[in-house]
């Protein structure tokens, strides 16, 4: 990185540190903070969409759709995140490959399950084994996003369902008295008003989502926890920059990062709440936000 870094063995103090902190491996560590932020920014809207669809389904007058909506929240909310993550990602990956195998290699005669092996034809591999490494990493990341969205969508569905029910019944009755159809009343009266009831619960979910991002590590995505452990471990002179066990410092950096992220989120959410409840006589206004927080907490 710097001109003085050509011979690290001769360096000391700050010069050594400046070179050490700019190795290719550290750059990957810094990039992984971006991975976490991208995960958050992509997952939050997708999870919200899942949640909205789930809440709408749960309110449906069509029984099978209602069962689907209620079943989705009940099943996903009732299974530990880690168990769901470990199961679902493998199941999804093998499911995709199985479908591709069926479509792309109809003439394949060998069984897919050979003892312990899961073997599909090379053309059905997802991604293809010849694809460059970044494609594999993006695919793994996409699987993680889908899994996160499904898990947090179930919680969001419950929060939004509660938010919809919290809109005063009189509002809907008035809308119907004005001649609005059920659909019109839902989109024009209920949806704009429910956010204020749902926001404390959604804010909670956002915080939990931030704290759940280290689960990426479990899915084999090289996130900040992976790199912190990898970089922090003691290094012998097989490495260019040998050092003793520094995991404490690396994990401390992660701690500070997460605290900063959650603190900034809190400030933004409080402002958003203040703006949404401005001039409204709802329980969300003023200090009521905290009470609603508990009422709708997952």
């Amino acid at each position: 990185m710097f001109s003085w870094c050509t011979d690290p063995d001769t360096l000391e103090g700050l010069a050594w540190l400046s070179c050490y902190l700019t190795t290719g491996k550290h750059m990957a560590f810094y990039r992984s903070f971006g991975t976490v932020m991208v995960l958050l920014l992509v997952t939050a809207p997708v999870a919200l969409a899942f949640g909205f669809a789930g809440a709408m389904a749960a309110r449906s007058h069509f029984a099978p759709l209602r069962w689907l909506g209620k079943g989705y929240t009940a099943v996903v909310r009732g299974v530990p995140d880690i168990a769901f993550f470990l199961f679902f990602v493998i199941a999804l990956d093998q499911g995709i490959e199985y479908l591709r195998h069926r479509i792309k290699c109809p003439d394949w005669s060998e069984p897919i399950r050979q003892g312990n092996d899961f073997v599909v034809c090379p053309a059905a591999k997802m991604p293809l084994s010849s694809a460059p490494q970044w494609v594999h990493e993006t695919y793994g990341f996409a699987l993680a996003v889908i899994t996160f969205a499904i898990v947090f969508g179930a919680f969001a569905a419950n929060v939004l369902y509660g938010g919809m029910r919290a809109v005063p019944r009189a509002q809907m009755e008035t809308a119907e008295a004005y001649g609005m159809s059920r659909r019109q009343a839902f989109w024009r009266i209920m949806v704009p008003q429910m956010w204020v009831y749902a926001l404390p619960g959604l804010g909670n979910l956002w915080m939990i989502l931030i704290k759940a991002t280290p689960l990426l590590f479990l899915l084999g995505v090289e996130d900040i926890v992976y790199w912190a452990r990898e970089l922090g471990g003691s290094k012998t002179s097989a490495f260019t920059y040998p050092h003793p066990d520094w995991r404490l410092y690396y994990f401390l950096a992660l701690l500070v990062f997460y605290l900063l992220l959650t603190r900034v989120s809190e400030i933004v959410l409080d402002r958003l709440m203040a703006r949404l409840t401005h001039g409204q006589a709802t329980s969300g206004a003023k200090s009521g936000g905290r009470a609603a927080d508990k009422g709708l907490a997952i």
Partner: peptide, 21 residues
């Protein structure tokens, strides 16, 4: 015929991630 070689990357000197990543 790309062969993907799986390793741990945390067992020097057998295999490890060097400072270039």
């Amino acid at each position: 015929t790309t062969v993907r070689m799986g390793t741990e990357g945390a067992y020097p000197p057998y295999n490890f991630i060097n400072d270039a990543g």
